[in-house]
């Protein structure tokens, strides 16, 4: 996961309720053949993308939970060790925004500030049916330290931007943690569980983490 000689490798997880368009966003971003004249078939549900941000080479591996939303228990195995999360809601569906809030709560609780969050209001092509207040969403995102962006997978609007924004944020976070001399490999529940020695290192810190 660490950056080797100016190369960055990040893991991004997509979370959100079913039918908000997570898969369409990621397919649009990685394939850009969404709803095109040519029919495409796609077999791999694990996608990667390479970026160049200000001369820094960034590799993204994007993990989609497509169709598995009702299995909340699967969430942790997907978001474990993620550097970034894209939390998608449908601007015409208030419940889906509530689900995003739940995910933010859970991610912050388990992964703390180690993860960069990007909240995305999808389906802006259906602006006239909007049910989620834009200003409210913006304010909420700000309050939890997340970026807030709008997109339409259908019209291919804002898709590249949201991945780029998140990638930039992750680069900044990694650079900051590297300069602070912290190990970027240690984070969250997985490392806490992985070894007894970590528990020994910070026994007092453990109970607190569960309550925030």
């Amino acid at each position: 996961m660490a950056s080797v000689a100016g190369r960055y490798q990040f893991k991004i997880v997509l979370l959100g309720e079913g039918c908000v368009g997570k898969t369409s966003l990621v397919l649009r971003y990685c394939q850009d053949k969404f709803n095109d004249k040519h029919l495409t078939t796609l077999q791999a549900s694990y996608l990667t993308k390479k970026l160049n941000i200000d001369g820094k080479r960034v590799g993204l591996s994007i993990w989609d939970t497509a169709g598995q939303e009702r299995f909340h228990a699967l969430g942790p195995i997907y978001y474990r060790d993620s550097n970034g999360a894209i939390l998608v809601y449908d601007i015409t569906d208030e419940d889906s925004f509530q689900k995003v809030k739940n995910w933010v709560k859970e991610l912050r609780k388990i992964l703390g500030d180690d993860i960069c969050l990007c909240i995305v209001g999808n389906k802006i092509d259906l602006e006239r049916d909007r049910h989620v207040d834009g200003a409210e969403a913006e304010a909420y995102a700000k309050s939890v330290g997340a970026k807030h962006l709008l997109a339409s997978a259908k019209l291919n609007k804002g898709v590249d931007e949201l991945f780029l924004e998140l990638a930039k944020a992750m680069v900044t976070a990694q650079d900051a943690s590297a300069s602070n001399g912290q190990s970027s490999g240690r984070r969250g529940a997985s490392s806490r569980k992985r070894g007894v020695e970590i528990v020994d290192e910070q026994p007092a810190g453990q109970p607190k983490k569960g309550c925030c």
Binding site: T40, L42, Q43, S45, A66, G67, Q68, F71
Partner: peptide, 18 residues
Amino acid sequence: PLFIKDMTFAHEGSETLT
């Protein structure tokens, strides 16, 4: 759930009708 995921991808990745 994994099969469901594979089918969701197949479904969202392309149109049913031309």
